[in-house]
């Protein structure tokens, strides 16, 4: 560790008392007092701007409702995308080849074929789903149970699910395995599940991109809505602004309550949007749980995480502050005292 160089202790020079009193008279006390006063002033501006919103409940609720619904829409889309995304992420592990066997293939022949395929070095396991198994599964999950009971003959084929080793690291290996197993006589139709997983992935990617664009659009809309609200507020409090200017208020002093108003509008809208999303999720939970049954329980709804919630609140508050700031920058320049 380096030795810390010490500055030679300077003799404390006392400021002349005369100077201190002068400062007290013109600038309102010492530095600490001023700092406290500054903090008090901020706190006052913070709560009085909230008080103003509460004092005009109808206007405030109208504005905040519009904003909250817009934010809830954008974040709702986001939630939808992350849910679909986690669903497809789970599907990735089920990359496998399904072999639908011809109708006349018997269970024994199917078992033989499965054993045959298992010998292939790039195959991990082969699962045989008999016609009966397939039918039971289908009856349980599809809801067509009664209708299927009416059928004379089981229409479902035997399926072999071939799971490759080192699942899908190598696409070529999978392809060649596919070509090999596809050629067996018993096989009616073969399909790599990955193909539709991949398709789903790109659909989700498009949805994700669209959600981002959509959110940006909503964000811009919110900027305009809050900006206009602040402009009206500034107009309503024009006298106050004028008088404050005449008694020596700086622009930042005048701006402060309006910036806080913008902050509150954004923040409260963000919180409301979160609750709207939460309610939508509660409503969707039951149907999704039913759907989850069809996917063998792999589907669980996810909601905004703690971090994402904080991000949502920060973004909506920032939108409020930024749009207020931009409006004030333009408007205060044109407000000259009369």
């Amino acid at each position: 560790m380096k030795p810390v160089k010490r500055k030679p202790t300077r003799p404390i020079v006392k400021k002349p008392v005369k100077h201190d009193t002068r400062q007290t008279r013109t600038a309102g006390g010492n530095f600490v007092d001023k700092l406290h006063a500054y903090r008090d002033h901020h706190a006052h501006a913070l709560f009085s701007s909230l008080g103003r919103l509460v004092a005009t409940p109808f206007t405030s609720i109208m504005t905040i409702a519009v904003l909250a619904i817009s934010i809830a829409l954008a974040s709702g889309f986001y939630i939808m995308v992350i849910n679909v995304q986690q669903l497809t992420a789970n599907l990735e592990s089920s990359n496998q080849i399904s072999l639908f066997l011809k109708d006349d293939v018997t269970d024994e022949e199917a078992a033989d074929l499965a054993g045959n395929i298992r010998k292939n070095p790039s195959v991990q396991t082969v699962k045989v789903i008999s016609k009966e198994q397939a039918l039971t599964e289908f009856k349980t999950y599809s809801g067509f149970g009664a209708a299927i009971n009416l059928l004379e003959k089981n229409p479902l084929p035997i399926v072999l699910q071939v799971l490759p080793k080192n699942a899908l690291q190598d696409k070529q290996e999978l392809d060649s395995l596919f070509k090999t197993v596809e050629k067996f006589d018993e096989v009616d139709y073969a399909q790599i599940d990955m193909q539709w997983v991949e398709r789903l992935h790109s659909i989700v990617e498009v949805a994700r991109c669209a959600t981002t664009l959509f959110s940006v659009m909503i964000g811009i809309g919110i900027l305009f809505i809050i900006g206009n609200t602040i402009r009206l507020e500034l107009h309503n409090r024009r006298d106050e602004v004028m008088i404050a200017k005449l008694v020596g208020a700086t622009n930042s002093f005048i701006q402060r309550p309006f910036l806080y108003t913008g902050f509150w509008i954004g923040f409260i809208s963000g919180v409301s949007a979160w609750f709207i999303d939460a309610i939508l999720m509660l409503i969707l939970r039951q149907p999704v749980e039913k759907l989850s049954g069809l996917y063998e329980g792999e589907l669980h709804l996810i909601f905004l995480s703690f971090t994402e919630t904080i991000e949502l609140l920060i973004i909506s508050s920032l939108l409020g502050v930024i749009s207020s700031w931009a409006v004030l920058l333009v408007q205060l320049r044109h407000t000259r005292p009369e």
């Binding site: 309102g28 006390g29 007092d33 001023k34 406290h36 020596g248």
Partner: peptide
């Protein structure tokens, strides 16, 4: 008001 503006405690 003028005092608040000037930053008095």
């Amino acid at each position: 008001l003028p005092l608040a503006i000037a930053g008095f405690g």
